[in-house]
């Protein structure tokens, strides 16, 4: 149970926290999406790393092999990657539209513009 034997978990947690921190701390809409992407990526690692067994092979039954890696997490994450790409694409498309509408992609400037325009409601 040393730190080194849980290496992949440490990396996962680091990426997870770093990604979430960027989403919260940054006011730039594109940077927020980058953070969100890092956060999602950490989950890929969370799933995939435990699926690999050292010395394990692809799960095709053969008398020559005894240890197999679990292929299911990889397949699940393939789906999650597609979801992540779609989210990022949609998010960036929204940022383009926001920039066209507000002339800015900084959160505080957008909120200020809304407050200023909000009185005409």
């Amino acid at each position: 149970m040393s730190v080194a034997s849980h290496f992949s978990y440490w990396i996962t947690i680091l990426l997870m926290v770093a990604g979430l921190y960027i989403v919260i701390a940054r006011g730039n809409l594109v940077k927020k999406l980058i953070g969100l992407s890092i956060f999602q990526t950490s989950v890929y690692l969370l799933y995939i790393a435990p699926g690999k067994l050292i010395g394990g092979t692809a799960p095709i039954i053969s008398p020559a092999f005894k240890i197999y890696s679990n292929p299911l997490p990889h397949v699940l994450i393939l789906t999650a990657i597609v979801v992540g790409v779609a989210t990022l694409a949609l998010g960036l498309a929204l940022v383009v539209r926001i920039r066209e509408a507000y002339g800015s992609i900084e959160e505080d400037e957008i909120l200020a513009a809304d407050r200023a325009g909000g009185d005409s409601e």
């Binding site: 997870m16 979430l20 989403v23 809409l29 927020k32 999406l33 969100l36 956060f39 999602q40 989950v43 969370l46 999650a80 979801v83 989210t87 949609l90 998010g91 929204l94 940022v95 539209r97 926001i98 509408a101 507000y102 957008i110 809304d114």
Partner: peptide, 24 residues
């Protein structure tokens, strides 16, 4: 309203965090 786009963006970020928490 242009605020719809910003509202959607906010929902996208929070919704994705929610879904990612679920998947974790």
């Amino acid at each position: 309203d242009r605020r719809a786009q910003y509202a959607s963006y906010q929902y996208l970020v929070l919704g994705t965090i929610g879904a990612t928490f679920y998947v974790i």
